[in-house]
């Protein structure tokens, strides 16, 4: 709660909190921003839409006549994120909510630097890491190899990987039901694979960690463990973004929430206030503990 009070004070407007933009340009010096999104627009271009555009001649036409307008070339523009601005600070855990296709995953990808922005800018402290349900590791290799390679790829030294190897395996809980870590990852269930992926990514102290529905696949015990780990990462002065359709998960981990709807930032404020509005909007009075199917790419 101390954190909440601090925010309120800093905002200097406890009453209007949540109604105005949560981010103020006059942020005091003791709060260090880690992610700054400056009126970000993201537009997808999808090839092969429109009548007959999927045919071979249309494809050739598209290649040969580069200069023509996008519409004539059968390219459709999908404006997935519209003029979104926010500032995230060190030690914050920020939930991202919104109905399916509202641009949450797209926004996270852009923050991670994996999607180009159409206009505006995203500034980050260091390199944010995105952890999503689709983040496949190497399926033909054993879990053990994946831990090792994942650690090295994230920039850990061989000694660091060796040092943390046991922690990662214990955290993932892969070996709870027998020696599964030495089996190829293609033999894992989707829940097990997701748990191992999260464990590898969470082994490093990220400045900014973006989590996209990654917790939804694990069992309850694993979810609790991951939420603890997210809290721990925050305390080590990191910033965590969490996309989830599990409102309880957001309430448990995040004190601030961004609500995206049709690509627009609809609300930005303390989780409780935003959640109340969001639940009224979606017509859901009770806490949702069940899981919705994985959110599709906003398109």
């Amino acid at each position: 709660m101390a954190e909440h009070n601090e925010h309120t004070q800093l905002n200097g407007d406890p009453e209007g909190y949540g109604r105005t933009a949560y981010t103020t340009p006059a942020a005091p010096a003791d709060r260090i921003p880690t992610v700054v999104a400056d009126s970000v627009d993201i537009v997808y271009r999808v090839n092969g839409t429109g009548a007959g555009r999927g045919s071979a001649t249309a494809a050739l036409n598209r290649i040969l006549r580069r200069e023509q307008t996008e519409k004539a070339a059968g390219v459709r523009r999908v404006h997935a994120v519209k003029k979104v601005s926010f500032i995230a600070y060190k030690g914050e855990a920020i939930g991202l909510i919104g109905t399916n296709g509202s641009g949450k995953s797209t926004l996270l990808k852009a923050v991670a630097g994996l999607l180009p922005v159409e206009s505006g800018h995203i500034y980050t402290n260091g390199q944010p890491s995105l952890l999503g349900v689709n983040a496949a590791l190497m399926n033909d290799l054993t879990g053990e190899r994946n831990v090792y390679l994942g650690g090295l790829a994230m920039g850990m030294s061989r000694e660091q990987v060796k040092e943390r190897y046991q922690d990662i395996v214990d955290f993932s809980g892969i070996n709870e039901k027998g020696d599964f870590i030495t089996l190829p990852m293609r033999t894992y269930s989707s829940g097990m694979a997701a748990r191992l992926r999260f464990s590898i990514a969470a082994a490093k102290d990220h400045d900014v960690l973006l989590i996209d529905e990654a917790l939804a696949t694990g069992d309850r015990r694993f979810q609790v463990r991951s939420e603890d780990r997210i809290r721990e990462l925050r305390e080590k002065a990191g910033t965590v973004f969490l996309v989830s359709h599990n409102n309880k998960s957001i309430r448990d981990t995040c004190e601030r929430t961004l609500w995206l709807e049709r690509g627009e930032l609809r609300m930005d404020g303390p989780t409780e206030e935003v959640m109340k509005e969001y639940e009224a909007f979606t017509g859901d009075k009770s806490d949702k503990t069940g899981k919705k199917p994985a959110q599709k790419k906003a398109a």
Binding site: T20, A21, T23, T24, P25, A27, I32, P33, T34, V35, V36, D38, S39, K82, K83, V84, S85, I87, A110, V111, A112, G113, L114, P116, G120, H121, I122, Y123, T124, N125, Q127, P128, E264, L265, R266, D268
Partner: peptide, 26 residues
Amino acid sequence: DTPPPTQAPADDLKALAARHGLTVSG
């Protein structure tokens, strides 16, 4: 219903990012 009207002007955000040594993502 629209993006928050009290957004910081673009220059301020850019300056803020620069002041704290943030870099363009990706």
